[in-house]
Design a protein around this nucleic acid. Structure first.
Lengths: 249, 249
DNA sequence: CGTGCATTTGATGCCACTCAAGGGGAGTGG
DNA sequence: CCACTCCCCTTGAGTGGCATCAAATGCACG
């Protein structure tokens, strides 16, 4: 664990937490929440910081409260693939396994709500509502990973970029229970390099395709890390998907 | 559901089931097993048959007892990506969701141990040992999907083929709690086309790379669907991985 | 105003795709 | 027993999309 990760005291009450109804605690009643409250603490990371290295012991589990992190895998010759995006409400860590399987890096400034491992695992055993929610979230993550398989295996560079923007827009909108539509802005809390790692491309190709999409009016750039999408439908079209994104869940 | 899927009566006892200690029922005590036994029935599919189409209602959940199936996703223009391999002991279907998210096809002759949805979901609520095992298996699947992301995003065609063979060899060996080593044989219950769908390649590329690996002595072919691997270590080397495959779990 | 980093843009090459033709084995029917 | 067919697989030639190598640009910060 990096020494410079700021550890904050437990002080934010769960009640007005921005991820209260989407995170692992979503289904909890107030007394279960009290138990969680007792074992939680906050940690803050800066963009670029590594939270754990693959293979390291990890003595806490956590929910992402704000910001973004990436799970990364590597081949020994250095080729890198991001294998998971952690956005607000996503869960970090695996109960029952102390060794981290992936390197986790903050791609933007990040706030985690952490739970000490042992007490959390105990809660998991005693609280079906938490265990059930975790299963639900894990199944959703599996679905997301499978969509990503389709992207990596079969989509063109252009479609990959468009798909990433669609996903980020949908996740951002989901937090406020809306569906993206019309003209929208999308935060891009990633460097071009991180985008490339996520999309299975090189950073040059990412840059070129971003330029192409901009040239053709599919997107507009507001700085490097903010994208304006004049027509969300057009973007979805470019992503190669037919579906409308399914239920709001 | 295809009309020609053979439905067999419940007759096989769970006790000497080949997947008794790896499937969703792995942790069950005998009385829990009795409950499962009461809601289970067997179904047999032939190679090539589709078990469910994406979007169809699915009124059962199941464990793969023998054979192999694939989860498949498609873009509207027909590009196809397999997003999951179901091998013996793997679980099929998602509790709490009746609509299948993916098309499921038997890639070889297949035997499923099916559970009616409603009673199974009830058991899941009342039996932490089953729910816990399902969470564990889902997390494992997520790990497998993430390894697959690395493969699709960053590996060469040659490495992809080698990786697939490594995975099949490991899964085959895991059923008998061994670790593949030295000279081994690997069953390949897939057409070249299905391999291509899984690896994000074309069938021509699969065929060419198989030929290349054969030419160079990494593999020998015994018919089209059986591969002899003279040196498993060599194969792992070709797959681009460094690791030894982790614990036997 | 210089330094450093992220990003963009350009030139070239290669790996895997596409299109096309041919081979081999299993099953069927004469 | 052989001819025919179908399906799966192999092999070949040519192309194109993305990677690689290289250099320039923009922007933040001291």
């Amino acid at each position: 664990m990096p020494a410079d990760a700021a550890i904050l005291a437990t002080q934010q009450p769960c009640n007005n937490c921005p991820i209260r109804y989407r995170a692992v605690c979503a289904h909890c009643e107030s007394e279960e929440l009290d138990e969680l409250e007792g074992i939680k603490f906050y940690r803050r990371y800066e963009a670029g910081q590594t939270i754990v290295w693959a293979g390291d012991r990890m003595d806490f589990l956590a929910s992402v409260v704000a910001g973004m992190a990436g799970l990364t895998q590597q081949l020994e010759d250095g080729r890198t693939q991001m294998v998971g995006l952690l956005l607000p409400s996503d869960f970090l860590g695996r109960p029952g396994r102390e060794q981290a399987a992936y390197t986790v890096t903050a791609t933007s400034d990040l706030l985690l709500c952490c739970f000490r491992r042992k007490p959390f695992e105990e809660l998991l055993r005693s609280t079906p509502r938490i265990a059930g929610r975790l299963l639900e979230m894990t199944l959703d993550e599996l679905d997301a990973a499978r969509d990503w398989l389709l992207l990596l295996g079969r989509k063109s560079a252009r479609e990959k970029i468009a798909s990433l923007l669609v996903i980020l827009a949908r996740r951002e909108a989901a937090l406020i229970k809306r569906r993206p539509q019309g003209r929208i802005a999308v935060e891009l809390p990633l460097t071009r390099d991180a985008m490339a790692d996520y999309l299975g491309l090189t950073l040059e190709t990412v840059s070129r395709q971003m330029s192409a999409l901009k040239r053709e009016g599919v997107i507009e750039l507001d700085g490097k890390r903010r994208v304006i999408v004049p027509s969300f439908d057009r973007l979805v079209l470019e992503s190669g998907e037919d579906s409308d994104g399914g239920p709001l869940s």
